[in-house]
Computed example of a mutant assay.
Amino acid sequence: MTPQPPENQDKDHSGAGAGGRWSDLERPPLNRTALRRALLRPGSLWTDVDVVPATGSTNTDLAARAAAGGLAEGAVLVAEEQSAARGRLDRRWSAPPRSGLFFSFYLTPRVPVERWGWLPLLAGVATASAVARTAGVDTALKWPNDLLVTVGDEERKAGGILAERAGDGVVIGIGLNISLRADELPVPGAGSLALAGAGVTDRDPVLRAVLRSVEDWYGQWSAADGDAAACRLQDAYAAGCATLGRTVRAELPGDRELRGEAVAIDGDGRLVLATEEGMQRPVGAGDIVHLRPAPEA
């Protein structure tokens, strides 16, 4: 979907009636003008912020613009609702309008391309720290790209990250459930910040905090030429990773699987498993299933 001109966009978000500004007082629309004022400042990573009422996928939209050429680094696209949102392994998910944050941004890293694999992990660290700081909810990372919260005594997925090559750079999409109620969850194992007891469910400050956190971590990572150890990104991810210390099953491409204890995140962002045979095996791609609860702190 092509982003609307600002004058039409503002009208869509502030008008009365279905889809209008006051159609759901518990879930007001994002304030595009305020977001742009807060984020588009001289020297900032962010160069443009668009907010659209609905689209299929913000990742798909930005990737198409990048492929067509002329998309500047730091472009951000936010949708109040997505109808064809995608996760890893082309999984689909949906949520009620304005119940979460659904957004993508475009980066053109000037670091060795073999280090670009750290970008979704960087986005995870940035998002988890921003949510903890702004909403007061501890958010853990499930390797490689899930965001976990605790609802009651149960660990649940509240968000995810998807990175895709596009044009000369990478589009990174983030989906985060904010105000979903129990009867709105897409699957029983899902969660939201509200269900986890968030002190803040206003999406504007959460989105600003996440983007500022991404900007900060991306600046440090870029200054270190993409060296995740030198900028302490590797340590930060490991510290917040709920997968480490657990027995897991890695479902690998080609219908293969590997079981072992997750013991480390290596310099390439891969999950290292210690197998029963005494081998340490790095996993660079695959679906991870937690088989054993996290160790007691």
Rank of each mutant, 00 (worst) to 15 (best):
A228L: 11
S129R: 14
G117Q: 09
N31L: 11
P112E: 07
P253Y: 12
R156Y: 08
E215G: 08
A38M: 03
H13D: 07
R281F: 07
P253T: 08
A194I: 02
A229S: 11
D287T: 13
G43S: 05
R203Q: 02
G69N: 02
A64Q: 12
D202N: 09
R259L: 15
L147F: 06
G70V: 01
D61I: 13
E257G: 09
V210N: 02
A250K: 07
G74E: 01
A130Y: 11
D204G: 12
L162Y: 06
V263H: 10
L211K: 02
A262R: 09
L148A: 07
L233E: 06
W93Q: 06
E114F: 12
G56H: 10
G197T: 01
V283G: 03
P205W: 04
P186D: 05
G189M: 05
L207D: 04
K11G: 13
L62P: 04
A38S: 14
V170N: 00
C231V: 10
G226I: 00
E261F: 00
R41Q: 14
K142V: 08
G19D: 05
D138E: 15
L35P: 04
A198R: 02
H13R: 15
R91Q: 13
N145C: 08
V51N: 06
V214D: 04
A84P: 09
A229C: 05
R259P: 07
R208E: 12
W217R: 14
R27P: 09
V206E: 01
A297V: 11
